[in-house]
Design a binder for these strands. Structure first.
Lengths: 144, 144
DNA sequence: CATAATTCCTAGTATTTTGGTAGGAATTGT
DNA sequence: ACAATTCCTACCAAAATACTAGGAATTATG
């Protein structure tokens, strides 16, 4: 039950972009990759996913890069993670994408547990927006 | 963020054993594998894990098999799943087993989220005992 | 006491998922 | 014109997962 690097890297990238969103300048893959120590090619694939979901906008060409698709306060960690990792269903039978797989769902006593787990995870993830994270970061910096 | 088959199969096996625990007769790997449609060899490995954790006891030889290590009411889904899947930390830096990996933990704003996720998952899993599941199963059967 | 049924143990292997590379086309600011 | 960028597709390596094989040790039972 580990998150994959897609989700982790993607979230970090989004935080980078959110941080830069004050100046409203696009952030390039190269700069994110450098600041986070990631491979550019791989990060590119992740950004493609985020773009399709509308969480970022992109501008091509020199001085191009990515900007947030909505304001930092409107983008939750949940949206980011679900975009990159799929809905957080611990088993397929409670995944929106793959339901109807189990033939004995009506007699299954574990199903309800997995639904609860899924919902509990999402509830935590949806509680935090990028803005929350930026504010928290400021706090941490001041406390040092 | 999917559970592996170890956790899923193991939980189902434990339910089988719990169901049989009324008669207090050991349940063989062969019979569990048959009833759940699993491979015997693989299930055996899973049972080894459960045994090491004390969740089941085993008796060798003819008429041997597995029995619960504690009463059904004392064994939670959480214990079973954590035994087979490790602590439910979505990232290594909040895993008891592998902490201290991250060098900038003190500045990390995502860490707190992963801790909350981990705790939320465990809270759900620990809420249910095998006894709860058996009782629920009875209810479902009667309602049909 | 022989035998069949079982757990126990170790090693190997196939399959799937994950994480990453490579290379080039299209676009755009300077 | 050209350098910096996103976009796109295909491929590839490593790791994790799910399973298989085979035999040793133990034990109830006829």
């Amino acid at each position: 039950m580990k998150l994959s690097t897609r989700g982790r890297y993607g979230l970090r990238a989004m935080i980078d972009i959110a941080r830069a969103s004050r100046e409203n300048e696009p952030v390039s893959i190269a700069s994110i990759a450098a600041s986070q120590g990631l491979s550019e090619g791989y990060l590119e694939q992740i950004m493609t996913g985020l773009k399709k979901a509308g969480l970022v906008r992109s501008s091509k060409g020199a001085k191009g890069g990515y900007t947030l698709g909505k304001s930092p306060g409107e983008i939750t960690v949940g949206e980011i993670i679900r975009t990159l990792e799929g809905d957080m269903a611990p088993v397929d039978c409670v995944s929106q994408a793959k339901k109807g797989i189990c033939d004995r769902a009506d007699l299954c006593v574990t199903r309800i547990i997995w639904e609860e787990v899924r919902d509990a995870i999402n509830q935590v993830l949806d509680k935090y927006s990028l803005l929350d994270l930026l504010e928290n970061e400021q706090k941490l910096l001041k406390e040092r």
